[in-house]
Design a protein around this nucleic acid. Structure first.
Length: 394
DNA sequence: TCTGGGGTCCTAGGACCC
DNA sequence: TCTGGGGTCCTAGGACCC
């Protein structure tokens, strides 16, 4: 039986929440993101701001130059947006129990079989928009189609406050004229590459042999793009996806060379990551250090611990040790620094979670730290000994 | 114009094991 | 003394997405 998938996308979500809560900002350009004088980008902006050519991910300095003086600039209030998001996801479950939040402002719903209860796809889409408006007073753009790709492109095709249904029989006509960058996995790097080959629309991609695409994009991506161009995509909705990593990073207002500043920032990031991990009852064994140098050069270093942890100090010491092992770093200016945690237990064990951040189980912490340091020394120390190797090369 | 912060997934190479 | 092939794990980097 063909499935009916719905994609729901809140319009200019952060900016819309701000305008909802501050009526005096309605009708004015609102930019949620970095401070206009500083480093950073636009996270979201209201439709009034978009009229000036401003959009998400645009450097704030560029946006500020384009926007009029009455523009409102606000820092994101993620906690508030998350609360609104939870309300929306909850109310969507009154339509279908199979709701997959894909981000704070988007969700997929499996609406297969809902026609008998609600009516045609248009009626289901109208119902979704209505329950969101009644619950939180915001508008959403909604798309319905036979799979995730088509539902997503349908919701993208009419914004804001849109409702678009693409029946299975019209998928190819809908897709063919679209620019190839609408396909998932085709972004700022891949699109120009394909365009240099004379390909511009999804239809152009569709007429290409599978082997050509696999050669150009790699086996996996090539196959995926070949399928998508034919309207073939995943038609399942995953209501309980588990997160794979937790991370915290920050970009400095001006680049940093002072090791003390790097150290204290890393300590802060480790505390943030540890806190979230403990809140979620997770412990991970892979600690990742992320460093962005001037001008815009990003490096990651990761280490696998013997046992999973959610302890702030363990995370900090591991990340700090990874940083110190990078002798080439020297005094180079650091733009961004951060910490990540991943590699969850396959079977979470209560005893391995340091539920209280202030207490480290006796003995184990020092042991784990030494494991870490040994591993790092092995990896980066004299002779470049790879961890796990029986003995150094002679 | 100068590039946030939170993520996911894929690739490729080296080590290791059988 | 020279050296296959498959599978898996680990790490770094990169593309992409919202």
């Amino acid at each position: 039986m063909p499935r009916l998938i719905m994609h729901v996308d809140l319009d200019a979500f952060y900016a819309a929440v701000e305008q909802r809560d501050r009526p005096e900002w309605r009708g004015r350009p609102v930019v949620v993101g970095a401070a206009p004088g500083g480093r950073g980008v636009v996270a979201t902006c209201s439709y009034e701001a978009r009229r000036y050519g401003v959009h998400s991910a645009m450097p704030i300095a560029v946006a500020a130059r384009r926007l009029p003086p009455e523009t409102v600039y606000v820092r994101p209030d993620m906690a508030r947006y998350a609360r609104v998001s939870r309300e929306i996801m909850t109310v969507l479950q009154t339509l279908s129990p199979v709701v997959e939040p894909v981000s704070i402002d988007e969700a997929y719903l499996d609406c297969t079989g809902l026609q008998r209860l609600i009516g045609p796809p248009e009626a289901i889409g109208r119902r979704a928009k209505a329950v969101i408006r009644e619950a939180v007073g915001l508008t959403a753009s909604v798309g319905l189609g036979p799979n995730r790709l088509i539902a997503k492109l349908a919701s993208d095709s009419h914004k804001p406050d849109g409702l678009t249904v693409v029946p299975a029989g019209q998928v190819q006509a809908f897709l063919d004229p679209m620019p190839l960058a609408v396909l998932r996995g085709v972004g700022v790097k891949t699109a120009p590459r394909l365009e240099r080959l004379g390909l511009h629309s999804v239809g152009d991609i569709r007429r290409l042999p599978l082997e050509t695409l696999r050669r150009q994009l790699g086996a996996r991506a090539g196959t995926a793009v070949h399928q998508q161009a034919r309207g073939i995509a995943d038609d399942r909705v995953y209501p309980a996806r588990e997160r794979q990593s937790i991370s915290k990073e920050t970009t400095f207002g001006t680049d940093v060379t002072d090791p003390e500043v790097l150290r204290e920032t890393l300590r802060w990031a480790a505390q943030e990551v540890g806190y979230v991990a403990r809140q979620e009852g997770r412990a991970g064994s892979v600690v990742t250090l992320k460093v962005r140098l001037h001008p815009f050069e990003t490096h990651t270093r990761s280490g696998t611990l013997r046992a999973a942890t959610a302890d702030d100090r363990m995370l900090f010491r591991t990340a700090w040790a990874l940083l110190q092992a990078e002798h080439w770093l020297g005094r180079r200016a650091v733009r961004l620094i951060g910490v990540g945690l991943s590699g969850w237990h396959s079977e979470p064990e209560q005893g391995d979670l340091f539920a209280d951040s202030g207490v480290i189980p006796e003995g184990s912490d020092a042991d784990r730290l030494h494991e870490t340091l040994d591993a790092i020394r092995d990896k980066f120390g004299k002779g470049m000994i790879q961890r796990g190797m029986a003995r150094p090369p002679s």
